[in-house]
Amino acid sequence: MGQLKPSAWACARFGTMAADLLEAIPVALRRAHRRALASHVEMGFSTNEAYGLIWKALHEELVSAIGDHSGVRRTKPKGASYELVVIGEHNVILYPWRYGDDAHTRVEDKRMRLSEVRNNLLTLNPESPEPQLTLEHAELTEDDLASLFEEERRDAQSMASAGRAVVLAYASNPDAGLLRLFWGDAEKADEDGYLRWTHLEEISLRAADDGTDAGGIGARPLVPVGPDTAAGRFDQAPLEEPVLGVRPPLTSPDTDPTATPQPETGSDA
């Protein structure tokens, strides 16, 4: 397979490593997906909790794929259980984000849950206030505390030295597999987690094709169904005829007297 040609933006961000990243990143994502899918199948949950750990697997796979390359260093954010890779002379941090589980939703319309690490990366302002003691710190000696705070200070300086963060936004699920992959420049638009993308481009997942399956356990389509595809649209089915009848007295127009009462539910997701 020939090497993919990076865009002018990618070359500006990553220099001579741009083409290598276009191939390495999809491969790392494929490996992370297979790990998460194996956990999902083995655990047998009816929900996607086990698969949801793909984010942590991807951090590890990115470090494994490119962390030892010349011109790449690693940094561990304060309080994080994972490492990030920092690339090139411009010190660009790659930060993966699973923005969705379908191929239809626009990445620009999704909100990111803003942790301290994500806030620091998106604003590139990792300077933190003076260290605050916690209950866990009470069990440490003064020397241990000094060592811990010094490590946190070095982490902050390491992140501060990065020129910018490039977000790797991807969509996947255990049924359909890998769906979309993008990278670009983003900054925090508001406190609700919406991002302002100043540049966004899609990375082909074909670069991850190593002859093994990276789909899911189901058979859902990997791309949106268009009007010219063989599958019918939802509004092409015949409409059901409404059943009309006499409403019993003393019932409101929107009440079914034979229905079982249902509790009110809601979601802030």
Rank of each mutant, 00 (worst) to 15 (best):
G44M: 02
P174S: 15
V86R: 02
S204D: 11
V27H: 11
V41I: 13
S7M: 06
W97V: 07
A19C: 03
V27P: 08
S172I: 07
L84F: 01
W97L: 15
R34K: 13
L58D: 05
R220I: 10
M43H: 13
S204V: 13
D143Y: 02
A38D: 10
D235N: 05
L222P: 03
R180K: 15
V167W: 15
P26Q: 14
D144I: 00
S39V: 03
A36Q: 10
R180C: 11
L195M: 05
L4R: 09
Y82H: 12
A160N: 12
L250Y: 08
R164P: 00
P26K: 10
I87A: 01
D190E: 08
L53E: 04
L222K: 15
M112W: 03
Q157P: 00
N91Q: 07
E241S: 11
L148M: 01
D185S: 13
D68M: 14
P261E: 05
P221W: 11
D20E: 14
W183K: 01
N120G: 11
H33K: 09
L114K: 05
D144L: 01
D254Q: 02
R111M: 15
F182E: 05
L62K: 05
L133N: 00
A269Y: 06
N91D: 08
S267W: 12
D190Y: 01
S147D: 04
K188H: 02
A57S: 13
E83N: 12
R154M: 07
L22N: 04
S204I: 12
Y170N: 07
R206N: 15
A269E: 13
V117E: 11
L21R: 05
T134G: 03
Q262V: 12
W183C: 08
D68L: 15
A18N: 03
R196C: 01
G216T: 15
V107S: 11
A207R: 04
R74H: 08
G216M: 14
L195A: 04
V63Q: 03
G193I: 03
A214D: 11
L222R: 11
M43Y: 14
G2H: 12
L145T: 00
S64T: 09
E264K: 03
T105M: 11
A19F: 06
S64M: 05
D101L: 13
A171Y: 08
S128I: 10
Q157V: 07
E42I: 08
R153W: 09
F182Q: 06
S7Q: 06
L148A: 07
R74G: 00
S128C: 02
D213R: 09
R164H: 02
A103H: 12
G52K: 05
S172D: 12
A32C: 14
G15V: 01
A165E: 03
G211T: 13
